[in-house]
Amino acid sequence: MRPDIQQTLSDLDATLTTIEKVMDPEEIATRVRELEQQAADPQLWDDPEHAQQVTQELSMQQAKLKKLTALRQRLDDVPVMYELAEEEGEDTALADEELQDLEQEIQTLEVKTMLSGEYDAREAVVNIRSGAGGVDAADWAEMLMRMYTRWAEKNGLKVEVYDISYAEEAGIKSATFVVHGEYMYGQLSVEQGAHRLVRISPFDNQGRRQTSFAEVEVLPVVEQTDHIEVPDNEIRVDVYRSSGPGGQSVNTTDSAVRLTHIPTGIVVTCQNEKSQIQNKAAAMRVLQAKLLERKRQEERAELDALGAGGNASWGNQMRSYVLHPYQMVKDLRTNYEVNDPQKVLDGDIDKFLEAGIRWRMAQDS
């Protein structure tokens, strides 16, 4: 086996060993057994909400344990693949490919172990709003929503759309959706900020280059333990009919809900669910997430004022996507860049997420 291959395997073994110390497979296995006992109890579903929490956690813990076990087994198997190829005088292409895939997966898992913030383990509420750039900006906002949706699909994650406000000519004015899964907020929070697109506008008859912007906001899903109470007298509730592209009505009843938080002026809408009650509940979850984030920012500002350090914001413009006159996507904070924008827009953003998380850790240290 080549010395460089041996060194790579040694480095991966050290990294995976560190990950195993942090995640503790034995502790996860113990927790899985506890949850399996709870899930087997016939009386569990007497409390559907608690039952759902148990089954969701069981599924996540089982997946986590399976991932760790599989990575260790694959790492143990790679040297054997090289030895067999060399003994048979065959090409090591398959072993090289497996080693490359393994290196990527272990690095990705390593980054997840860095997510230790108070809300990092939560699911994520993502808000996308079109900015400067007219119809191109609305189209760009829809492209970004597709990018995150495709990323979620590739990772086996469920996306639940709460609200979409369609623009008249093309694209969307705004969208709100939840990405379900463990550590979604920790991973996607590094996407917050302004995303800039430079391209030849498909909406310009003269084929001129256009720069457009869209804003991405990422919030942690609020849980019951967060104590974000919103008195009824602080909320104005408006109901209306859901609308689709071009303003067309897609619902014959007034089921869509708009909540306005009077003290702060925060407005949240939801029209995805079939009933007014469901839409109001979903809108309330987003409103609580926004109020939780506002509270966190105020607390952070107080700490900064006291000289506790840290930056309350990373600056607004965080990534550029250039489709013309050259091809490039570059993160302006980490300087990580790729020359295949279409691949990124199809959901291949893992490297950007990893670079963003590592950058954030360096900023906070």
Rank of each mutant, 00 (worst) to 15 (best):
S313L: 08
P231D: 05
N272M: 06
V126A: 14
K64L: 13
G315K: 00
A281Q: 10
E88R: 12
L44E: 07
T15V: 12
D139G: 12
Q53D: 09
Y185N: 06
N233A: 10
T15L: 14
Q297V: 00
R196K: 09
D346I: 08
E168Y: 11
R208N: 07
V159F: 08
S10D: 08
Q38C: 15
S249W: 11
I164S: 04
D76E: 03
D304G: 13
A170C: 12
E234P: 05
E103K: 01
H324C: 07
E273R: 14
G315E: 05
L292E: 00
V126L: 15
A312E: 09
A63N: 07
Y240G: 03
E34T: 15
L68Y: 00
E36W: 11
V161I: 09
R241Q: 12
Q43L: 12
E87F: 08
M23K: 09
A170K: 08
I5A: 00
I28H: 13
L16S: 09
R208V: 05
A40S: 07
S255F: 03
L323A: 14
Y336Q: 04
V322T: 11
T92E: 01
S365R: 02
Y336D: 02
N316A: 04
G356Y: 14
K154C: 11
L303D: 08
V250M: 15
L12R: 05
P42A: 14
K67A: 02
M318W: 11
G133C: 09
A301C: 08
R33Q: 11
A289M: 00
L188P: 13
T69V: 02
A152R: 05
H195Q: 15
E168G: 14
P202Y: 09
A141R: 06
G310F: 10
A283D: 00
I228F: 04
L68I: 02
M114N: 12
H180Q: 07
K158Y: 08
S59P: 02
Q7Y: 02
L287D: 04
R150K: 11
D238V: 05
S165K: 09
K66Y: 05
Q342E: 15
T176A: 02
T252P: 13
I128R: 06
